[in-house]
Amino acid sequence: MGEFLVLQTDFGLGDGAVNAMYGVSLSVDPSIRIFDLTHDIPPYNIWEGAYRLYQVIAYWPENSVFVSVVDPGVGTERKSIVVKTQSNHYIVTPDNGTLTQIKKHIGIKEARLIDEERNRLPKSGESYTFHGRDIYAFTGARLAAGVISFEEVGPVIAVKEIIELPVTEAVISEEVITGNIDILDIRFGNPWTNIDRELFKQLHAEYGQSFEVKIENGTRQVYKNIMTFGRSFADSHLGEPLLYVNSLDKIGVALNQGSFAQAYHVQSGPNWKICIRKVIL
């Protein structure tokens, strides 16, 4: 294996939970290189955990091992699995929808159920509430260090059985694109949509042109305005909104040197919809 272990959780850093995962991993092999994806996933937000994996995994070397623990069902009958992606990365995670974006956009070659008789931290068998430490970090570290092979994780399960969260496809109809706000660029408050650049180009979009943007949460409209399609944030005046192509080649919405999400109380997830229409002046 590549000996890169990448951790993602909703645990935060206010206590010792993440530190314990580090300790377990280094106890398996002190030469493992451990990195944090994020530990600031909102509690229980499987959707955001799924997206953050998709956001970064393609930029890591092949054979890197990811451990993702956003697990509101810890201690229940939900499965603990390891998958090998089409990009030759490994993900150790509960089977609860965390792999939704990976399965859809990157693809999964094979999946295995974690055999907890072999791949569980010794003397932790009576603990049912910290599988991130006792099962996922331990198994991920063993895989990254080459202590076990992928085949030794446990029995094969069908990829088609892996749980997926509902995903809405972006569509174009009568010169209007309707999509979803999948995630926020948290630090800067930019909503990121599932509208890819190629679909957006079907509106014959050019930099500098104006578009009507409408955002809804369920059936409630929370925003409607005209904004410019810009190459960069500086293509609008200070405090003005714009459309742009983000780092995943999808359409984002921003305020120049401001937080669009905070200014207009916009969030992300399956219920947040966006409609974009070209304005003919």
Rank of each mutant, 00 (worst) to 15 (best):
Y51D: 08
N88L: 05
Y90V: 03
V92E: 02
G73H: 08
V67L: 08
N63R: 15
N88F: 02
V82N: 07
D29T: 09
S68E: 05
S31A: 14
N88W: 04
G49L: 06
H39V: 00
N45V: 06
I81C: 03
R52V: 13
G75M: 07
S87A: 10
V56C: 13
W47Q: 09
P42R: 09
A58C: 06
S87M: 09
A58H: 09
V70T: 10
A50Y: 02
W60Y: 15
H89S: 00
T76G: 10
Y44H: 13
V69Y: 07
Y59C: 10
E62G: 08
T93C: 08
V56S: 15
P61G: 03
S68P: 08
V56T: 14
I81K: 04
E48R: 14
W47E: 14
S80K: 06
I91Q: 02
V83F: 10
G73I: 04
Y44R: 10
V92D: 02
R78A: 06
P61E: 02
G49W: 12
R52K: 13
L37K: 09
V82C: 11
W47N: 15
I32T: 14
R33K: 14
H89L: 10
F35N: 07
T85S: 06
I57Y: 02
N45Q: 07
P30E: 09
Y90A: 03
V28D: 07
I81S: 02
V65N: 03
I91S: 01
N88M: 01
W47D: 13
P61N: 00
L53K: 00
I32N: 14
R78D: 11
V82H: 14
Y90Q: 03
E48D: 13
Q55V: 12
V82Y: 11
H39G: 00
I41Q: 14
S64Y: 10
P43R: 06
N45D: 15
L37M: 14
I91V: 13
A50P: 10
I46C: 05
V69P: 01
